[in-house]
């Protein structure tokens, strides 16, 4: 594939994430591979900020321990930490330069030991929200061309869209944690108690007994009966006052 075709393929894959049931991790791994090929760098990683703001590696172009360590180190220092904080890219960082690596000497030392000469960090950002960073490593001391830098940022943007899209889907899918559905059921029951108590001019406890007896007699879930009472679809004449 040509460079344009690779880039286009990455974009198309990102659009595919708009449908349900796609595997984010798989997608990000593919994206890392594409970065490798398109930008001719040695290693690539995608780091995501967790709710606590700490960066976690979510996908990498290869799984060499030394590389993984470099991503793991960026909990508190490293180009990605700075990139996430500022929201701007840090490109062409020479790992030999004490000036360029002043903010992260430990990281720079480890990266050199792992055989890398240059690193780049690009923000994964949508408007004000920085969700993570794309981290590139090169064993050669060479700079990204301007066009390479644009491609890298385009890929980081693609990853951002995929991640935000995935979050929306996941958010929808797990909106019902156990306790939340327990709470929702309980609220419906309490509201139904109140409605029936008011109609019957009685105490909510008595209304509750009637609702519970009705649910049992009909072998139906109490919450479903309560929901119908609220919606006005329950035949309340079937409810027996004790």
């Amino acid at each position: 594939m040509t460079r344009e075709e690779h880039l286009l393929a990455a974009m198309v894959e990102a659009v595919d994430t708009l449908v349900d049931n796609f595997d984010l991790i798989d997608f990000l791994h593919q994206l890392c591979d594409r970065c490798n090929k398109l930008l001719d760098v040695s290693a690539v990683g995608v780091l995501l900020a967790d709710p606590g703001g700490k960066l976690q590696l979510i996908a990498a172009s290869d799984e060499h321990t030394r590389l993984l360590e470099l991503f793991a180190l960026q909990i508190d220092q490293g180009p990605c930490v700075e990139c996430r904080r500022s929201g701007t890219a840090r490109l062409n960082i020479s790992l030999d330069s004490p000036v360029a690596t002043a903010g992260f000497p430990r990281f720079a030392q480890r990266a050199r030991q792992a055989g890398f000469a240059t690193t780049h960090a690009l923000p994964m950002r949508l408007r004000q929200q920085v969700v993570g960073a794309l981290n590139l490593f090169d064993t050669r001391a060479q700079h990204l061309s301007e066009s390479d830098a644009r491609v890298a940022q385009a890929l980081a943007d693609v990853a951002t869209i995929a991640i935000l899209q995935h979050r929306t889907i996941v958010h929808g899918n797990i909106e019902r944690a156990q306790l939340q559905s327990a709470l929702s059921s309980r609220i419906v029951i309490e509201q139904a108690k109140g409605i029936l108590a008011e109609r019957w001019h009685t105490h909510p406890d008595e209304a509750f007994d009637a609702l519970r007896r009705h649910a049992r007699a009909q072998q139906r879930a109490l919450t479903a009966v309560c929901r119908e009472l609220i919606d006005g679809t329950l035949d309340t004449s079937a409810l027996q006052r004790s």
Binding site: I187, Q191, A192, K193, G194, I195, L196, A197, E198, P204
Partner: peptide
Amino acid sequence: VHQASGMISVQ
């Protein structure tokens, strides 16, 4: 609170 909401909705 939710019982009262039910009652007020009828009232």
